[in-house]
Design a protein around this nucleic acid. Structure first.
Lengths: 203, 203
DNA sequence: CGGAGTGGTAGT
DNA sequence: ACTACCACTCCG
């Protein structure tokens, strides 16, 4: 007897690189025969072309720049790469600065106004401005598997010896934590945005 | 602020006995403000017009026959009805015999073939045939809140003094119990039926 | 896999 | 335009 496939996991051309689509057939219950679809990105996180450091040259070919941290000697890096199977990629410090003063535009070439960050998220590091923090934070929120918390080192130590104290996995902002009241305020904003969307669609 | 009622569950005169109408206000989304109506029958099982004893006269007015068990005296019944708030309705014995030799037909007036019961389910009671047991069993499966097990009294006692020993809540079949192997066999049947349904829907 | 809840539409 | 109904998603 030819039993149909109950679990089927496939790569799929329409999906971003590294994503897989899995179809699972419901076998029992009232909804037996229906198919649940799951998407997995395990193994490869995010589009490699978006992982910093990023070239700001216009090109459809993704060519990430690879500059190593200055205080890591070549020999120590080779040893680490051998241990970890060369999976840990070096990260450029302050890659965000390369994108400074570049703004997004709409189709009419009108620049889109700046987005303001909450006051409590303060820039940290030498010569880092608010727009730069925004890029840094947005990238972290997109990529990081772990929580985005900001830099833990003190402001003075970062400004004097950034190479030592900057954590490249975290955005260039001061350490911040979110409380119940923050969550509540954000929920209210979402509620309000939904209301306005409703009204807009009705009209 | 005047908050409208979001969930309202009511008995409703227009509904069959035991049904409840619930109105639920949609709170979010594009259809916010609309009301969904749900009907529930929890608490009372089945349409009272289908509960035996059933008249076989054609009539849109439901007029159940009410014959009391002969061995229950009027005084004892009155006492019980006082205790239980007159909620226990008397049941006619062997009401199934009234429906004997009546078969279902399709729209072309062709009679639908008999359904066979498993061998182990044996008819019990004076002059009860397989088709009668089937009606009896089907009704029990539809109505009973408690498990359907069949008659517990012995065959001889039932045939000699049915009025005393017949349990009107159970179908007119010998006591039957279901084992692990029965369940397994049934599961296999269901699996097979589902497979065929899938194939049919695909074609 | 079930259930709550919303989106979408045929039919009036 | 509205209603009643079904389809579907999303979450636990």
């Amino acid at each position: 007897m030819n039993v149909s496939i109950e679990r089927k996991r496939t790569d799929c051309a329409a999906l971003p690189k590294g994503w897989q689509r899995e179809e699972v057939l419901r076998k029992t219950g009232l909804s037996a025969g229906k198919v649940d679809v799951y998407y997995y990105s395990r193994g490869m996180r995010a589009d490699t072309s978006l992982i910093p450091p990023i070239r700001q040259t216009a090109s459809i070919f993704k060519q990430p720049v690879t500059v190593v941290r200055s205080q890591e000697t070549d020999s120590s890096r080779v040893k680490r790469e051998l241990q970890h199977g060369s999976q840990i990629k070096p990260k450029q410090l302050f890659w965000e600065k390369r994108l400074e003063h570049l703004g997004a535009s709409n189709t009419h070439n009108e620049e889109i106004g700046a987005i303001e960050l909450p006051k409590r998220l303060r820039a940290i590091g030498p010569g880092i401005h608010e727009t730069t923090v925004l890029q840094s934070l947005a990238t972290a929120l997109h990529h990081n598997t772990h929580p985005v918390t900001g830099q833990t080192a003190s402001k003075t130590s970062l400004n004097t010896n950034a190479g030592v104290f900057v954590n490249p996995d975290q955005p260039l902002m001061s350490n911040a934590s979110i409380g119940e009241d923050d969550i509540k305020r954000q929920e209210e904003r979402v509620q309000y945005a939904r209301l306005r969307l409703q009204e807009a669609l009705r009209a």
